[in-house]
């Protein structure tokens, strides 16, 4: 699945640099935030701040980079874990 990313600022109170993630039909499926310092082992990673539809729920993974995020989100949208 081809996802489109669009930069956005996110009002988390800490990690503001984010990406809106759209599916092929330009529907918003997720919001990613770029983790700053202070996260052991996860600083610099992209965090699934919010997900919609199949991405909704208690699971909020982090991805090492945006390619990994695209891959992980595509898999979850396709029904994988």
């Amino acid at each position: 699945m081809s996802l489109t990313l669009r930069p956005v600022r996110v009002g988390t109170g800490s990690d503001e640099e984010g990406m809106l993630v759209f599916d092929e039909e330009q529907r918003l499926v997720a919001v990613l935030t770029h983790l700053g310092e202070n996260y052991d082992g996860a600083s610099g990673h992209w965090y699934l701040e919010a997900g919609f539809g199949r991405l909704d729920g208690p699971d909020h993974p982090t991805y090492a980079d945006l390619d990994a995020a695209r891959e992980g989100i595509s898999q979850r949208l396709a029904g994988g874990k």
């Binding site: 988390t12 109170g13 800490s14 052991d40 996860a42 909020h60």
Partner: peptide
């Protein structure tokens, strides 16, 4: 760890980290 705290509270480790910072 913050991950263990998160597993007890039903939130992500990132969220736990932010709340602890708050």
């Amino acid at each position: 760890t913050q991950g263990e705290l998160a597993d007890a509270l039903g939130i992500s480790a990132v969220h736990a980290n932010r709340v602890l910072q708050d």
